[in-house]
Amino acid sequence: MHVPDGFLDAPTSVATGVVAAVGIGIALRGARRELDDRTAPLAGLVATFVFATQMLNFPVASGTSGHLLGGALAAVLVGPSTGLLCMAVVFLVQCLLFADGGITALGTNISLMGIVTVVVGWAVFRGAQAVLPKRVSMVAPAAAAAALVSVPVASMVFVALYAAGGTVDIPLGQLTTAMVGVHTLIGIGEAAITFLAVGSIVAVRPDLVYGARRVLAARTLQIRESVR
């Protein structure tokens, strides 16, 4: 859900705008390293993919449904820098062309749902990969762990921002419980969908998944006895 205009006060909005700008600056350098001159078309198409998957509805129960946020998914699929750029561009397009999310809250939206989910998602993913056995089948569970953690952490950062620059004094304890509670549930859904989606991609084209590259590189060529 996008933060609208007027939810956080002006100084907080400007500060998160600066954070978003710095994050995008770092990601621009990183993306050139990850993709060189393929950056523009590939990141553009992946951003379109993230945008489109946010339109894909997953039924929950009795008519309600949810959709993917995609931060952790993007980080695992195309790498943290490109993933961050994709998320940032998605929010930029949603804000400017679809009026979804306020323009003064653009920095907040990019920082929360772009930078926090991608960075936390990627850190958890790498951590999980270090612990789990080095097999291609372990990429999807690691991605699920990344998605599971990234969403509640983003909601906690939101509560922290709200404590600093919120415009209405809601009791913080209650806000924290509500936000983190709801987003833990969303995180579980996000983890399940990320697990299924990454699993289906790894089964077909593991070479496209950035997070699987190390595992693939570590694999040795096996020549098996053929059955005659």
């Binding site: 393929r38 078309p41 590939l42 553009g44 198409l45 992946v46 379109t48 993919f49 489109a52 998957t53 894909l56 997953f58 039924p59 929950v60 129960a61 993917l68 699929l77 399940a192 969908i193 299924l196 989606a197 990454v198 699993g199 289906s200 991609i201 077909v204 084209r205 496209l208």
Partner: peptide, 23 residues
């Protein structure tokens, strides 16, 4: 209901592969 998630998630996976290859 959530039992149908694998099908939709596979659609998302296919969409990623198609988008990446188009890129």
């Amino acid at each position: 209901n959530p039992r149908h998630w694998p099908v939709i998630a596979k659609s998302a996976g296919v969409l990623f592969i198609r988008s990446y290859e188009r890129g």
